[in-house]
Design a binder for these strands. Structure first.
Length: 553
RNA sequence: GCGGGUGUAGCUCAACGGUAGAGCGUCACGUUGCCAACGUGAAUGUUGACGGUUCAAAUCCGUUCACCCGCUCCA
């Protein structure tokens, strides 16, 4: 258990108690990996998404050359033509049993693995007529894995490579290689290599598809097809990570569809539409906020790894020659965005992926990670990835539609390179909650949510100090004026301390209180959430006061 | 997916197989003139769900669901 597990438990407890986050379908025993936002949670999350949309799309930062950034938005359907997922690579990677190479992070289909076994060495005198025999009769236990390939063709090449290498040493020569049927017509290679002719022995090998149960039981013995090293492969697992559904009334194979596992593909699929309709010129970005769905193997850590989650994604299209500059620029913009909204730099951990982690088409990727109390390892909030021209090229190939861009100034036609800052809305929300959670034992109400004012679910509360003598009427009027502009609450009940305490737990930055002096000189107190300090302002200036405070960066 | 743990009121937690409780919170009334104050009162539970053992189950057993921890995983 990490050192801050107790802190996380308190945060979870507060989130439920105050109405930030509830377990989905709780009255039915819940459902794994799904969460609901309560009255305060929905305001918080909306504020985060709106801050993102405002700061990235409507009022984006100035570009590196001092020119304004071109950013536009889309809102695409969650269900798309299933071919989209073939093009994006999700269909295969999500549906079949897959194995990972822990070292190279390569993932491949388990049911296509071809194993190459060394069976045994036999005297050369027994070699004649071998071609006509069933090679499996020679099998002695245990055959020794020597190599693994991910296709029959590769297995053959691999075998030839081994023999070539041996031939180079001047001692070995391979004799034959042939295909036979094996278990239900699967293709197998069988081969033998004369070995150390002076010792009069030869070596037998065979290659065949590795069965799934073998992969499961012998995962630790099978060499990686990429490195040849033993012990780096995971067990094969079924990755049904996309949610299946059907469209139309008939539920058959032709109506199979998927809930999107990411919002990005809606952007790529609309690349041409946006270009043709909105007068944008490269470089420019398309943004989208929306729900995505992944059947996580093991949802864990509160809302951090949910099966239904919301993304805030940008696909930024630029020329390949400027792409690294843009990648670095976006990386810094995004890190600073979190800092500006209150995530402290020591908890925020940008981490550049090393080459082994990168997808094969990617040149660079920074994971913006955050130290949550539930883990000793930083966890990813956002990835800023250099995706090359992979996605547009894939869609061009699969759809047959041209995805290239023509630059009128340089008269150049090219497929744009994409920089993808992809942020998790729920993960960010959780990070802002964890960051805001503060315990100050010196205060009568120790638990305080110190949200940045822009993110706070309630911007201000208005109280009559006591619920009589004309105070409620004045307070109510202030409240009615404020709530036209900001999320506010009015609370006339119970002791003033209790009301302040409740607002501390909700993370409300300011409380206006109408008291006896208000009746005389028209001033009210403003109480600051973080310091507990009060000042007096004119009751007519509450809105002005909030405007000033909330616009602060 | 594997191993371990937990599940009782909104929250935190008691209750040895024998009548389900406390603190806090919530609500009402009174009081109160700035920090969970005070007084009085109230509501709230098929003890996660299902099944079994038993005269009797929150308690013992089985199944299941959810959450937590460790592995694993995170395209």
């Amino acid at each position: 258990m990490s050192a801050d597990a107790t802190k996380m438990e308190k945060i979870v407890s507060l989130c439920k108690r105050r109405g930030f986050i509830f377990q989905s379908s709780e009255i039915y025993g819940g459902i794994g990996g799904f969460w609901d936002y309560g009255p305060l949670g929905v305001e918080l999350k909306r504020n985060i998404k709106e801050a993102w949309w405002n700061d990235m799309v409507r009022n984006p930062p100035t570009g590196p050359s001092g020119r304004d950034l071109q950013m536009v938005g889309v809102d695409c359907s969650i269900i798309m033509n299933p071919k989209v997922w073939e093009a994006s690579g999700h269909a295969t990677g999500f549906a079949d049993p897959m194995i990972d190479d822990r070292e190279t992070k390569q993932r491949f289909r388990a049911d296509q693995l071809i194993g190459l076994w060394k069976i045994k060495e036999i005297p050369k005198s027994e070699f004649s007529g071998l071609e006509n025999q069933n090679i499996f009769e020679f099998s002695v236990s245990p055959p020794e894995f020597t190599s693994v390939a991910i296709s029959v063709r590769e297995a053959a090449e691999e075998f030839e490579k081994i023999l070539r290498k041996e031939r180079k040493q001047g001692v070995f020569e391979y004799r034959w290689i042939k295909q036979v049927s094996y278990l239900g017509g699967e293709v197998a290679l069988m081969a033998a290599a004369p070995k150390r002719e002076q010792q009069e022995t030869i070596c037998l090998w065979y290659a065949r598809k590795i069965m799934l149960d073998e992969l499961t039981s012998q995962a630790d013995l099978i060499p990686s097809p990429y490195t040849g090293k033993i012990g780096n492969l995971t067990q094969p697992r079924q990755f049904n990570l996309m949610f299946k559904t059907h469209y139309g009334a008939m539920e058959d194979a032709s109506s199979l569809a998927y809930l999107r596992p990411e919002t990005a593909q809606g952007i790529f699929a609309n690349f041409k539409n946006v270009c043709d309709s909105s007068r944008v010129k490269i470089p420019f970005g398309i943004a989208q906020v929306g729900k995505s769905f992944r059947n996580e193997i093991n949802p864990r850590n509160y809302t951090f790894r949910s099966r239904e989650f919301e993304q805030m994604e940008i696909e930024f299209f630029c020329h390949e020659k400027d792409s690294m500059m843009w990648w670095e620029w976006w990386r810094n913009v995004r890190i600073n965005w979190y800092k500006t909204l209150g995530l402290k730099s020591e908890n925020l951990r940008p981490r550049n992926q090393d080459e082994k982690e990168l997808a094969h088409y990617s040149k660079a990727c920074t994971d913006i990670e955050y130290m949550f109390p539930f883990s000793d390892e930083p966890q990813e909030l956002e990835g800023v990835a250099h995706r090359g021209c992979f996605d547009l090229t894939q869609h061009q190939t699969h759809s047959g539609k041209d995805m290239s861009y023509f630059d009128d100034e340089s008269k150049e036609r090219f497929t744009p390179t994409v920089i993808e800052p992809s942020a998790g809305a729920d993960r960010s929300t959780l990070a802002f909650i964890c960051e805001a959670y503060t315990v100050d034992e010196s205060r009568p109400s120790p638990e305080i949510m110190r949200f940045h004012p822009r993110l706070a679910p309630i911007k201000a509360a208005v109280f009559p100090l006591v619920n009589k003598e004309g105070m409620p009427e004045i307070a109510e009027q202030i409240y009615r004026d404020l709530r036209k502009h900001y999320a506010c609450q009015y609370d006339p009940k119970q002791s003033i301390g209790k009301r302040y305490a409740r607002m501390d737990e909700a993370g409300t930055p300011f409380c206006f209180t109408v008291d006896g002096q208000t009746l005389q000189d028209g001033t009210v107190t403003v109480r600051d959430r973080d310091t507990g300090q009060q000042e007096r302002i004119d009751k007519g200036n509450c809105l002005l006061f909030l405007r000033e405070k909330l616009n602060l960066e």
